[in-house]
Write a protein that binds this DNA or RNA. Structure first.
Length: 798
RNA sequence: GCCGAAGUGGUGGAAUGGCAUACACGUCGGUCUCAAAAACCGAUGAGGGUAACCUCGUAAGGGUUCAACUCCCUUCUUCGGCACCA
């Protein structure tokens, strides 16, 4: 058993004392910024953290040996509700609690031996960090991107605070899962929608992001291209705008449906025989919760209003209905119904006996009867019953009709977006105070830059109940208006913590700067982040907000790039017995206990070897044993070095160098380690000399750094392995002199033959045909065709 | 419903058109030992055969190809995102 405990402590001390991972400007070397999503300081690291940071550490150390100037920082996303709740529970204060947790966590991270530049550590709850949150907020306010608005907001009754749309998951709070309610409040918003076009388009630049993250952001931004059509009310001529993405079906619109809350409804039913029935229906749907209404399996209900609208393309009068399946929040709150080509409209029309008219035929010149339809036809086809557009393929007709409508002034090409502005006010204590004031005379007044930071008062009475604790701190609330010098009131809400994490990667470039959030020159050198690593749970929230902030900084002229993260890796979860490891399930494995029993290097090796980084990882105690066994196996090689390695082993080494280098570059750590295991197996067959073994140690270094530092020193090196150079393979060593050629007959392997590597195709064919097994299988039949794949295989077709 | 990812031995996984199951775990056998552990060596997809070897086999079915886990079509299953989105 190799002495892992002493080794790991020794080298952790060495790295820290020597400042090995300190990142400084060094322009003669290419830079590499490696970053993992910084943790919330809960006090203890779990296997998910270990996996995340180990993956990043391999990348950082690999690049280091490859001669890059590596920036690999660590910090803490320290504001937020859990600390506030924990402080209440433990009768302490959030800042004391949080700093204690950070201290614990720092010790744990150091015990893992990660290659962080600890001089750059930041905590978002320190005023020299959150001061810049306030600064950024003020800049956004100046640009009209931070604004105050009264509207219905998502409210978590259990956390007693507001939530952003992105924080509502399946109708529940992302943190506590309580059912989210709607509440009318005046709150601060960030105008992320001003960037929606760029946020969507630039997804195309993110070639090195996982497809699914791109897809999720795409869904979330939710652009839909269509036409707003101006239907007229038959009685008054008033316009009813209707949004559709299927303007090609406009000639098949046989009725219109308004949302029950639509402002026109009350007006058009007035005095009609249907008025009472309609009002009853509106009242009924108003009582239904949003969740019930938007579940798709509920039967679509609706009533006729008694009013008619005129379809502007053919002057046809069609009935106006109201129905619960039309939502006021989307589009214009009104739809044109085309029952033949929309399944929801189809079901509704069948239920209420409304007319159907086919306007898209699947094939040209084939009549279809609307009465015979079993379901709506939503596919492509050719226009029929569509006036001047008949015969056009519907995709072409879409554009033609839209352009014609614009010309006629009866419609407008339009884009709708799902993305909403970002609500950032939180009625909690433990966050960045929003740097705003309210003056009875001057209204909403920003805190002057010179007065930043607006510090959190240490003595707020927080109980977790009943509104923002800051509102109860008189000396915080009472301010003098900087404009009129009259008495004013300070904003008492704090910022959502996602604000803090939307730009921390820039702060790491110049963490102690006190004149700006980040240094222009430093950011120019280090940014963008070359490799970002974190959990898929941030696919929308954090990653979208960070992209938004980056674009905002670009517009301010502070940086000259659009996207913060060049390459993104979302690591898979750690499972135990097929389930996600979590405290609530009680199936966690404590990293500390593994480190105590086997050491950090073994834990790292197991995690890296058991699965590719992106996929889920099934925890396996026996796998840990296997990793430990392997390291001991490597350790023993050093005790049995031979004078000179056999040539076959040297060849195997060069093959391994090539493969490991390529695999690490592509984050295929599991196969890189497998290749090293093969090399070690080969060494056990023939024995390795010092030269070959030194190369093996270098190749292993990114995975098991303490272990390799020690072996490096044992091998007689005076300098740390961190200063060594990554091995290069010699292409000449990869050239094989003889090859095994696979021989197939009709695609099945029937023989294998040894040939010289440079054998000519003709003589290869002759050798193959002369082969005993081949002749047996061919039984004298002639070869119809012989396929030769150079250096690999020959396939004879008979 | 739309979008995305995936489905391979007893298990984790490898192979992106050219020997399916590398590497590891587990299991079995051997060496060493008084014995055990450790270590080292070997076997290990299924079925058939004393054996050489043969047949089948990558969720299911079809196709393209001399050759398919890999490409195309259809279907099923699992996971994730969005969703009465007009």
């Amino acid at each position: 058993m190799y002495p892992f405990k002493e080794i790991e402590e020794k080298w952790q001390r060495f790295w820290q004392a020597e400042g090995v991972f300190k990142a400084t400007w060094r322009k003669d070397k290419p830079k590499y910024y490696c970053l993992e999503m910084f943790p919330y300081p809960s006090g203890k690291i779990h296997m998910g953290h270990v996996r995340n940071y180990t993956i990043a550490d391999v990348a950082a150390r690999f690049k280091m040996l490859q001669g890059f100037n590596v920036l690999h920082p660590m910090g803490f996303d320290a504001f937020g509700q859990p600390a506030e709740n924990a402080a209440i529970k433990n009768k302490t204060k959030p800042d004391i609690w949080t700093h204690k947790c950070i201290d614990w966590m720092r010790i744990e991270l150091r015990k893992m031996g990660f290659s962080y530049d600890w001089d750059r550590e930041i905590s978002t709850c320190d005023s020299d960090y959150y001061k810049w949150n306030q600064w950024i907020f003020l800049k956004m306010f100046e640009q009209g991107l931070a604004y105050r608005k009264a509207s219905a907001v998502n409210w978590c009754p259990s956390c007693e605070t507001t939530l952003a749309n992105e924080e509502v998951i399946d109708g529940g709070c992302w943190r506590c899962h309580a059912k989210v309610e709607q509440k009318e409040l005046e709150q601060w918003y960030l105008k992320i929608t001003a960037y929606r076009q760029r946020l969507l388009e630039d997804l195309g630049q993110l070639r090195q992001w996982p497809e699914r993250v791109i897809a999720m952001q795409n869904n979330w931004i939710g652009r839909s291209q269509g036409v707003e059509i101006h239907f007229r009310l038959k009685d008054s001529g008033a316009i009813i705008p209707v949004f559709t993405t299927r303007v090609d079906t406009i000639f098949g619109a046989t009725y219109i449906v308004l949302a029950p809350e639509h402002p026109l409804v009350k007006e058009i039913i007035k005095g009609k025989p249907q008025e009472r029935q309609a009002l009853e229906f509106i009242e009924k749907t108003a009582k239904e919760s949003k969740v019930v209404r938007s579940s798709s399996d509920v039967k679509k209900e609706g009533v006729f209003t008694g009013a008619y609208a005129v379809n502007p393309v053919n002057e046809e009068a069609i009935p106006i209905w109201i129905a619960d399946y039309v939502l006021m929040e989307y589009g214009t709150g009104a739809i044109m119904a085309v029952p033949t080509h929309d399944q929801r409209d189809f079901l509704f029309a069948k239920e209420h006996g409304l007319p159907l008219r086919i306007v898209i035929a699947p094939k040209e010149n084939t009549p279809v009867s609307a009465q015979a339809l079993q379901e709506a036809y939503e596919g492509d086809g050719f226009q029929v019953n569509s006036g001047q557009f008949n015969g056009l393929p519907n995709q072409e007709a879409k554009l033609a009709i839209a352009q014609w409508m614009e010309k006629e002034g009866i419609g407008k090409i339009q884009t709708h977006w799902r993305l909403r502005d970002w609500l950032i006010s939180r009625q909690r204590y433990w966050g960045t105070p929003i740097p705003m004031m309210y003056c009875p005379a001057c209204g909403v007044v920003p805190v002057p830059y010179a007065d930043l930071p607006v510090e959190l008062p240490a003595d707020a009475p927080f109980t977790g109940k009943g509104g923002s604790p800051l509102s109860k701190v008189k000396k915080f609330v009472d301010v003098v208006c900087p404009v009129c010098k009259g008495p004013g009131r300070r904003e008492t809400d704090t910022m959502a913590t996602f604000f803090d994490s939307s730009w921390y990667f820039l702060r790491f470039c110049s963490p102690r700067l006190d004149s700006a959030p980040f240094g222009k020159e430093e950011a120019k050198y280090w940014m963008p982040v070359d490799q970002y690593i974190g959990g898929i749970e941030h696919a929308i929230l954090h990653l979208l907000y960070s992209r938004f902030f980056t674009k905002f900084f670009k517009d301010l002229g502070l940086i000259d790039f659009e996207e913060p993260f060049q390459r993104l890796l979302t690591q898979g979860m750690v499972l135990k017995d097929g389930e996600v490891m979590s405290k609530s399930r009680g199936n966690t494995v404590d990293p500390d206990s593994i480190i105590a029993a086997y050491g950090t290097d073994t834990l790292r090796l197991f995690i890296l070897f058991a699965a590719p980084p992106e996929t889920e990882l099934e925890w396996d105690d026996r796998g840990i044993e296997g990793a430990f066994k392997f390291l001991n196996r490597v350790w023993r090689i050093q005790e049995n070095l031979v004078e000179k390695s056999e040539e076959s082993l040297t060849r195997a080494l060069h093959k391994a160098i090539k493969r490991v280098t390529e695999d690490i570059a592509e984050f295929k750590f599991n196969t890189a380690i497998a290749a090293l295991m093969e090399l070690v197996n080969a060494i056990y067959q023939s024995g390795a000399d010092k030269e070959v073994f030194s190369k093996l140690v270098l190749l292993l270094f990114p995975f098991v750094p303490h272990f390799c530092e020690e072996l490096w020193q044992i091998l007689g090196n005076k300098e740390s392995i961190c200063n060594a150079a990554w091995p290069q393979h010699d292409p000449a060593m990869l050239v094989e002199r003889s090859l095994v050629i696979v021989v197939q007959i009709n695609g099945k392997v029937r023989s294998k033959i040894d040939v010289d590597a440079d054998i000519a195709e003709d003589s290869l064919k002759a050798r193959v045909l002369a082969d005993e097994k081949v002749r047996e299988w061919m039984q004298g039949k002639p070869a119809k065709h012989i396929v030769v794949v150079p250096k690999k295989l020959v396939n004879i077709v008979i």
